[in-house]
Amino acid sequence: MQEVAWSSWEFCKVSAGDNWHPDRIKAFVQSYQEAGGPCPREEYVHFIPFIRWRLRKELRDHEMAIAQGLPGEPEYAARLLGAFERLRTIPIQLF
């Protein structure tokens, strides 16, 4: 489910990278289910938490790179934070 959730984020997010297209996400999940994807329906309660977990990881990795002297990307970090906050308001049970 973790990989399905993150893949849906990557394939269905808006070009700004801080939100997703609701119609695309539903189509993505529906296609996955129709193709026989092995994740049972009861695991979909973890969908949003997994995406938020990965966004936190991406932000931590970004901050660690800055701490090691690499240049940061403030716009990237802002998009991650925006997405993290936005997903907080989406009901966990989407599907």
Rank of each mutant, 00 (worst) to 15 (best):
L80R: 11
E3M: 03
I51C: 02
R79L: 08
A5E: 04
S8E: 05
E73H: 10
S31H: 06
Q93D: 06
P91C: 03
A83H: 09
Q30W: 01
E75A: 09
D23L: 07
I92Q: 09
V45I: 11
Q2W: 04
P71I: 06
G82M: 06
D61M: 00
A16Q: 14
D61E: 15
R56D: 11
P71C: 02
H21E: 07
G17A: 02
A83N: 07
R86S: 08
G36Y: 00
R88Q: 15
F47I: 04
R24K: 13
Q33N: 03
V4T: 12
R41N: 13
T89H: 04
K57M: 03
Q2C: 03
P22F: 01
R79Y: 06
G36H: 07
A77F: 03
G82S: 14
I90V: 15
F11M: 13
Y76E: 06
A16C: 07
E3D: 15
A35V: 09
A5F: 02
R88N: 14
E73A: 13
P22W: 00
E73D: 15
D18T: 03
S7N: 14
Y44K: 10
W53C: 07
G37F: 00
I51V: 15
P74F: 01
E34Y: 00
G69I: 06
K57E: 12
E3G: 08
G69V: 01
I92V: 07
E58C: 14
T89S: 02
R54P: 10
R56H: 07
K13L: 01
Y32T: 09
H21N: 12
Y44P: 13
S7L: 12
C12P: 10
M1L: 04
P49N: 06
N19R: 05
F47P: 12
S8Q: 12
L81K: 15
F11K: 15
R88G: 15
F95P: 15
Y32P: 11
K57H: 08
R41F: 03
A27M: 07
D23I: 09
Q33I: 12
G72A: 11
L81W: 04
P40G: 05
A65Y: 02
E63F: 02
S31K: 10
W53D: 15
I25E: 12
L59P: 14
E10D: 10
L81F: 03
R86W: 08
P74S: 09
I92E: 10
G82E: 04
F28P: 09
H62Y: 05
E85G: 05
P49Y: 02
L81T: 11
Y44C: 08
H62K: 08
A5Y: 03
H46N: 14
S7I: 04
L94S: 07
Y32Q: 11
P91W: 01
